[in-house]
Write a protein that binds this DNA or RNA. Structure first.
Lengths: 338, 338
DNA sequence: CTGAAAGCGCTAACAG
DNA sequence: CTGTTAGCGCTTTCAG
């Protein structure tokens, strides 16, 4: 068992005091250049690495950020994490990531654990259970202890924290309008997110567009497991030539259901999904999607967190809205010329 | 700014010594039941949570595991993480996750950082750059300091550590044999992983099967970006009615290229990929794949790590091999009856 | 049964 | 310019 070298070890090695070594390594002006050189050389030779825990205990700064997400298998969240990781690393922070798995209970546990290990800030996208029950005590505790909190994507407005979201309203609105321009008359919203904040925003955007067009609102709330059946049932009794879904998998499932019901995409019905992942790009037909700029969301979220940590004064909560972009592929017909 | 309550705070609150409180909370037999009760009640009221850093400093146990993976956008790794997270949480450990992004440099940084924060063990799947350059010093350092190391999936045999891998050899072998049984005569391996350990194992499995069948080996090494072009070029000059790819995306790209070259899947050419993700399940035609049991890999890896941590004596490195399973879907023809 | 004290590795105020 | 000291929050002997 080799010992990790500590300040003490290198101090003894050089017949210096611990504090001299500490200061030398910190490039303190109190220390002469000659000893700095000696110390730094020794440190390198002995492969010295400061113990982050000891340092953290002293300074109550750990240079780690805690993030809790509902689900890593979802392409959007995975991408967000990539953006976060990059931005955090760039600023000398590291990430400890927890997965709530859409469970309030697990989310609470994660928050507690992150608080236990003294992360400098907590970043969260709410689990769907949290959004349903609106139980926020665990998060208010965090705020109470003045630990910077940043919410992203699935947020709760009552929480007094920074947040970064995409413009879900506009994403849905634009989707409906685009389908309309390609000639669709009967456009439905197929949602598996009706109890999350983003699902609600998207529904509002959908409604607004439908209203503006003077069309009939058709919202199908379902779960991924029942989607194909629910959509098939719906098709039996309703006119339908356009579908906006709240995510990527739903769009794929919807297209599969349409195929089974002998409807051609995009000729008979146009389909638009959210989240621009591998499925969307590579399916046949390739899916027209609302691109969420997930990496950018991750980046901005980390930036806000670091700002909060490093500013002494408490800042007013800001809400950052990242615009979406409609990526047009082959699951929608070409826009009709007038 | 509210203070987090410490042992000291609750000791003062109750006119007890810090050590009594500490012991009471730890359920030490030295302490009377009555004071235990008092202390625990107070702790709950004051929302006491032990500071993990302070505890870690003392005990040099942090109950955190560091994991570094090459890429989180890859379905396989995301799934592995899910399995790990679950198993870790079950045992009271938490995960700090780093992404090497296939870069040796980033992998070194991550390892250093994990060592700095005193994780109890490090879990890694090597970046492709690491596997190419075979530079292992950073990992040997870890071993030198007796920090338990567990490798998974992309491993290096020279490292004296536990590892868990899938049976890549057999996965590839079985794939070729299955294609053969569906009537394929000219089966190629399409690899974008030729410089990783798993890519090599799969190539060996492929070769073994081809040899056994007395057929000609056709290996196409490429990158995802050039895959469609390389495959199209290959098709111009070679007979081909079966393809095994080293991953899911490659299989999808291959099918797209086949479509462009007017070959029907599975009628003209059968396709099998590795990794059983959303793409494979939902593409049209649905992809026959080698299922990697990613969650199980994650689980076993964590178990090995925890065993290493908690056993006093150093154990002999074991290599755990998780068997794959061929999931048969529509990208391959039915098996021919004799 | 309870408390005093040392120490984990580090930083920083204060002496020298 | 260098060293001594105290203390971050906790665990753990060792006394009482």
């Amino acid at each position: 068992m080799a010992h990790k070298t500590t300040l003490k070890a290198i101090a003894e090695h050089l017949n210096l005091s611990i504090s001299t070594v500490s200061k030398a390594l910190a490039d303190s002006p109190e220390i002469s250049d000659s000893t700095k050189l000696v110390v730094k050389t020794a440190a390198r030779q002995l492969k010295y690495r400061p113990n982050a825990m000891a340092r953290g205990l002293k300074s109550s700064r750990t240079k780690t950020l805690g993030v809790v997400i509902p689900n890593i298998m979802h392409n959007f969240f995975a991408k967000v994490i990539v953006g976060m990781e990059e931005e955090a690393a760039k600023n000398g922070y590291s990430l400890v990531t927890c997965i709530s798995n859409e469970s309030l209970q697990k989310e609470k546990q994660s928050i507690n654990m992150l608080s236990d290990v003294s992360v400098d800030a907590i970043i969260i996208s709410l689990s769907s259970e949290t959004q349903q029950t609106e139980e926020l005590e665990h998060l208010n505790d965090i705020l109470y202890f003045d630990i910077p909190l940043v919410q992203f994507d699935r947020i709760h407005e009552n929480l007094n924290s920074h947040s970064v979201v995409i413009n879900d309203f506009k994403g849905a609105y634009d989707s409906v309008m685009h389908l309309h321009k390609t000639g669709c008359k009967n456009i439905a919203l197929l949602s598996i997110l009706s109890d999350t904040s983003v699902g609600k925003k998207r529904a509002q955007g959908y409604e607004a567009a439908i209203q503006e067009l003077g069309a009939d609102s058709k919202i199908i709330n379902t779960k991924l497991e029942h989607l194909e059946k629910d959509l098939s049932d719906f098709l039996e009794e309703n006119e339908l030539d356009g579908i906006v879904t709240t995510d990527e998998s739903s769009a794929i499932y919807a297209m599969n259901a349409l195929r089974l019901n002998k409807r051609a995409v995009p000729e008979d019905v146009g389909v638009i999904g959210f989240t621009d992942g591998a499925l969307a790009r590579n399916y046949f037909p390739a899916l027209t999607t609302v691109k969420q700029q997930a990496e950018i969301i991750g980046k901005r979220t980390i930036q806000l967190a670091i700002e909060s940590i490093e500013s002494k004064t408490k800042l007013e909560p800001v809400q950052e809205v990242i615009e979406t972009e409609l990526v047009i592929r082959n699951s929608t017909s070409p826009v009709q010329q007038k």
